[in-house]
Nucleic acid binder design. Sequence first.
DNA 1: TGACCAAATACAATCGATTGTATTCTATAG
DNA 2: CTATAGAATACAATCGATTGTATTTGGTCA
Lengths: 339, 339
Amino acid sequence: MENNKVTIHDIARALNIDSSTVSRALNNSPRVTQVTKFKVLNKATELGYQRNLMASNFRKQKSNLIGVVVPRISRHFFSSVIAGVEEVAFESGYNVIICQSLESLDRERNITETLLANRVDGVLISVSMETNSNDHLLQLKKNGTQFLFFDRHRQISGINSVLIDDFQGGFDATEHLISKGCQNIAHLSGPQELKIYENRLNGYKSALEKHHIKYRPELVLYSRLMEKDGKESIEKLRSLPIKIDGVFAANDVSAIGAMKHLKKNGVQIPKDVAIVGFSNEPISSIIEPSLTTIDQPGYQMGKQATEILLEQIMNGKSLSNGKKIILKSSLIERESSRK
Amino acid sequence: MENNKVTIHDIARALNIDSSTVSRALNNSPRVTQVTKFKVLNKATELGYQRNLMASNFRKQKSNLIGVVVPRISRHFFSSVIAGVEEVAFESGYNVIICQSLESLDRERNITETLLANRVDGVLISVSMETNSNDHLLQLKKNGTQFLFFDRHRQISGINSVLIDDFQGGFDATEHLISKGCQNIAHLSGPQELKIYENRLNGYKSALEKHHIKYRPELVLYSRLMEKDGKESIEKLRSLPIKIDGVFAANDVSAIGAMKHLKKNGVQIPKDVAIVGFSNEPISSIIEPSLTTIDQPGYQMGKQATEILLEQIMNGKSLSNGKKIILKSSLIERESSRK
DNA sequence: TGACCAAATACAATCGATTGTATTCTATAG
DNA sequence: CTATAGAATACAATCGATTGTATTTGGTCA
């Protein structure tokens, strides 16, 4: 009922000492005697005192807030990252504000604006599929707000990123299909504004090259990689004169869209067409045949990104300039490519 | 680089007026002329002013923060709820702090403590499986922090909840199985401290009763409903002398655990055993056979809960005392019960 | 005893925006 | 031309904790 209104001044008054002493006692400053600290702590408990973080943060010019911007919370990969972020942040006394861009650049701009107004101490961001400019990100930089990218990054000088090795992932996925005997391998790629898709595509190309398979641009389709995009892409591919026998999709969702369509049309997986996805979403192990995919360590990525961000916040600047932390990804072979 | 340090005082100085006038101008107060407002707004843009929400919130004794406590972000149902919360909160200028209890009461206590210290304006909570006491929740109440339950609630007088109709869901699921000819229907239930599981169980019992099927306690198994719990439960059930022909699981994850085990052992679904889950997780439509389940409108639940919470915050109190908003759930028939 | 040092505590300003009250300004009526 | 209402603006306190500086206290040594 009654607003918890106990302040350090109330404690000070009750003990007939100054509020500054109370403050220092509560913060365990060496400038206060053990005896006084004990009295203050006791009285604080007695009165049910709780530090007003709004006041404290304001005075210290530190919000103890971290903003996390993701395209969509409900994507398992991102919620794993967030779980990792939470873990590290919470331990260090930071709160996390989570924002969804829903793949919209407008929303993303809006979000960075809000985060700035809230004076967050730092921002972790994985950009939307629409993000093809850096102005809102540069605004963060100009304001001195520490931030870094994870997963979906853009090239901005001096800004760190925590990524997985998308090139290697794309390479591994493609080489895996080749090792299974596939020769006409299609690739479902995403917006090329995003480095991750560019890199996965490059990995794909590189694996083809290594194995002396000609790269055919018509086998690479670009979309936003939703389930229906996977379906539509595979339809287009099947209308081509070339008969594809392998598909490397840049995410699991589109891979599953493709699989569903193939199954419905009586195409056998992996016998006729082998498929590899990307991200290791939980559904990929449940679907039948289970989907071979590239595992992305989301939880670990979240933890690591947050550790680096907190370090940047502590130092008021990034120690490593424009560094890319590359986390290992690994191929998980499942039935969709086992032949 | 340079800290955005422009304050209303800078604007005031530049225009040779008082900061209070600037403040009122920026807040569009009727006490300031249009001319002055115009000048202030212009100068603000010119100097790159951004309101310091830390200061503003502190002064107004309002954090504009909402805390959301969920067992686990990565569960699709909860991330959908959060998406709904975000949506409504963001529009109203609130930020959302998301916390995971990870099904631990200790963590949940810790979290409410932190949220209180951060002076959040309100809290939405879906309690953990371990939560068997209300002390930490009563602390919120005592502090005058507005809060309400969604999905997993506890009985506290005067506290509102947004729920789905678990009883009806349990009833529908069970009756559906009966309508498919099942006679020996097992139920995988969760901790009875949680009303939702109690209610789903009651729905199950009620449906049996309506159709004059004897309720057998040995067919109801209690667990934390993880995938391996589903597997273990089904193992136990299969060792009973009674041959079960239907399973109603209180969530999809445990249903899938059970399905996997049955399939591995050559039991045909739905021919030998029909299965119904609960929650309509994305995997449930992907698994084969696809899983009949009860749809929970998570996104809508998040939106509605937030609307009510914001109303409570506005009024400084709950208008409706201990009201339960019950959202409709609906059975989605899929292959796991189609016979 | 008095001087002096260090330890403990008190004083007071501050963070930036908000807001109740006081003051100044302007225009109009008498 | 002055009195005055009402509009516009200025003044000043405030939110609660923090922190640099000033003051007091207590103990030690000459």
